[in-house]
């Protein structure tokens, strides 16, 4: 795996909002077949970095590159899964309709979605174990189920890179387990996965590579190597963390 060239790279990346710096000096390589966790406290720039990688925010300095080419906007092979809270869940559409919106930009304006498109969407829902709720309204879903629908919608795109913003936040344990299974499955197919989280234990269990972020990159490497008291303190500030137990999780 390590011999493959990275699919996404960042070079001296910085993002400023007005006069405030959100990210600085970010140099990063994202590899295929690897799950990368972006970790950091609130305001550390996790979401910003994900959006830069998705081509949604142009960096103020430096560049993000997909397969060596500078990203100038969203890319068809990069799929982004927003935070659940970004969305109005009372919107009157069904789970299947919501999933099909993943294809909104790429289908004929005049025709309804084809049988094939619907079958593909149903398969994606099956992959996240939501096919039995395909006709349910999205406002009837639990947090975990919402996250699954988002994931199904992203699966339709079948991209090389999957970027997820806080996919594990506020979802039930079965959904967390399902997410881990699915990400692992995608990883084995060579997809590069990057997700933002502030849950260290979750990252220790799931990620192959962890990036500790607080404006800039504090540390990066395998969770087992970098989850150390001094590094975590520098990333998260003064919060008390049981590092030993985390390393045990990472090792297991």
């Amino acid at each position: 795996m390590s011999s493959l060239p990275p699919v996404l790279t960042c070079h001296n990346l910085a993002v400023h909002y007005d006069n405030r710096s959100a990210l600085r000096d970010v140099n990063l390589e994202i590899k295929r077949g690897q799950i990368t966790a972006l970790l950091g406290p609130n305001g550390a720039g996790k979401s910003t970095l994900l959006k830069v990688l998705a081509g949604m925010i142009p960096p103020s300095h430096g560049a993000a590159k997909f397969e060596g080419e500078e990203l100038s906007g969203p890319h068809a092979n990069i799929t982004y899964v927003p935070q659940r809270s970004d969305v109005d869940w009372t919107f009157p559409i069904s789970v299947l309709e919501c999933t099909l919106l993943g294809l909104a930009g790429s289908r004929s304006r005049w025709k309804p979605f084809s049988r094939h498109d619907k079958a593909v969407a149903m398969q994606a829902l099956k992959d996240v174990r939501m096919d039995h709720l395909a006709q349910a309204q999205i406002d009837a879903l639990s947090g975990g189920q919402q996250q699954r629908v988002f994931l199904a919608r992203a699966l339709l795109n079948n991209g090389d890179v999957l970027l997820l913003d806080e996919p594990f936040t506020g979802v039930d344990v079965p959904t967390q387990d399902m997410l881990v299974d699915l990400l692992t499955e995608l990883k084995s197919r060579g997809t590069a996965i990057v997700y933002a989280t502030h849950d260290l234990a979750q990252a220790a269990r799931t990620a192959d590579y962890a990036v500790l972020l607080n404006g800039d990159i504090v540390a990066e490497g395998s969770p087992h190597d970098i989850f150390q008291q001094d590094v975590l303190l520098r990333t998260f500030g003064g919060s008390v963390i049981s590092v030993e137990s985390l390393r045990e999780v990472a090792a297991s």
Binding site: P74, T79, P82, D86, D88, F91, A104
Partner: peptide
């Protein structure tokens, strides 16, 4: 004609933007 785009930007602007 633009029902899907209008629906998507009404429902999920962030994802809409990420699809270009």
């Amino acid at each position: 004609m633009f029902r899907r785009e209008i629906t998507l930007i009404s429902f999920d602007r962030v994802f809409a933007r990420s699809t270009g």
